[in-house]
């Protein structure tokens, strides 16, 4: 399915990218927002890689991840490209989009109850895509049973006959993951897939996702507000603020030596469970709403390191260390 050629800079051993978001800009029609929802967002997910996209509400992380399926806010204007296996999603026609969603990209949302039809049996939900792509009914049912077993549901045959209300939230999220895997997609996009789950259930669901990635080499874009979770499961992390990527690097680097004050602030305000961990330190102010379009760096008003230049000139995302950061003072070494 891969039609892309790797960029010349990529190491020959690096697996090919399954997702490349390239300079994505997304605006709502005039009057509905003062700033672009997404402003020059670029990110890459390679086969077998788990990539985190973290940020607070209004950062644009959910909009960015939905764009991968071609799900855009009504009336929005876009620029840039979202390429899945080399093909641009934003220019696809309906038939091509349907094929993309059925076979190449699967999505898992936060609330499993919102993603399944409550009136239909779980078996119908799981086999729908397979039957639509021509798999005979009996074969599709057998395959659905295997998928449920793979995500740890006991008595998969019986589960196929049950309705969504007969499952707990955690069990239903497994069903949704099973459905997402039915077509063996190259890319799984997960938008806060465990936020609504209990912590022990979260551990089970994350363990399933990690195992599937290892076994099938699925690339995963994992959207979360939970930095501790991102630090635990992602290879690389992108941090978003007010519609822009403000920092990206490998997980270890990002958490040990953040270069952007917002990343450092997020780390400092996240409560940590270890004994003797410092008390969470708040970031003053609040995230930028869509009605606000501050000049310069969107984080300047909350930033302890801001200088005059920060409110005048928008910092570009540039290389600092082995990753990228969008801060005028990234080179100075931030101590928070």
């Amino acid at each position: 399915m891969n039609h892309s050629t790797p960029p010349p800079s990529a190491r020959p051993s690096a697996p090919p990218p399954v997702l490349e978001i390239d300079g994505l800009e997304l605006r709502l029609p005039a009057g509905r927002a003062a700033r672009p929802i997404l402003d020059g967002v670029s990110l890459t997910v390679r086969a077998g890689e788990t990539v985190g996209l973290v940020g607070e509400s209004g950062s644009g992380k959910s909009v960015a991840c939905r764009s991968v399926l071609g799900l855009l806010p009504k009336g929005s204007l876009t620029a840039g490209q979202v390429r899945v296996n080399g093909a641009d999603v934003l220019t696809m026609d309906r038939a091509r989009l349907a094929a993309l969603r059925a076979r190449e990209v699967a999505m898992v949302f936060q609330d499993p109850r919102a993603s399944v039809n409550p009136l239909r049996r779980v078996g119908d939900f799981l086999t729908e895509g397979l039957r639509a792509s021509g798999t005979p009914a009996a074969e599709a049912t057998a395959r659905a049973g295997e998928l449920l077993a793979a995500v740890g549901i006991r008595d998969p045959r019986g589960a196929l006959r049950r309705h969504p209300h007969q499952f707990s939230g955690g069990m239903l999220q497994r069903v949704v993951i099973a459905a997402a895997l039915a077509a063996e997609p190259a890319l799984l996009v997960a938008d806060e897939p465990t936020t609504a789950l209990d912590v022990t259930t979260q551990a089970e669901v994350i363990s399933i996702l990690a195992r599937l990635r290892a076994e099938r080499g699925t690339g995963m874009l994992f959207v979360t507000h939970d930095l501790e979770l991102a630090s635990a499961i992602c290879d690389r992390v992108y941090v978003m603020y007010a519609g822009r990527i403000v920092e990206t690097r490998s997980t270890g680097e990002l958490f040990d030596r953040p270069r952007h004050p917002y990343t450092a602030g997020l780390l400092a305000c996240t409560p940590r469970i270890e004994a003797g961990a410092p008390a969470p330190r708040p970031i003053p102010g609040r995230p930028v709403s869509l009605a606000e379009a501050p000049p310069g760096c969107a984080f300047a008003a909350r930033c302890a390191h801001a200088v005059a230049r920060c409110t005048e000139e928008t910092p570009a995302l540039a290389r600092h260390g082995e990753g990228l950061a969008a801060c005028h003072r990234a080179d100075e070494g931030i101590q928070l």
């Binding site: 740890g152 912590v199 022990t200 979260q202 551990a203 089970e204 994350i206 363990s207 399933i208 990690a210 195992r211 939970d226 501790e228 979770l229 630090s231 635990a232 499961i233 997980t251 958490f255 940590r272 469970i273 270890e274």
Partner: peptide
């Protein structure tokens, strides 16, 4: 102990928590 080991953190292995 199960609750505590389920809390994600760096170096966390969910497979250990769930015994898979």
């Amino acid at each position: 102990r199960l609750l505590l080991s389920s809390v994600p953190r760096r170096g966390w292995d969910p497979a250990e928590v769930t015994g898979r």
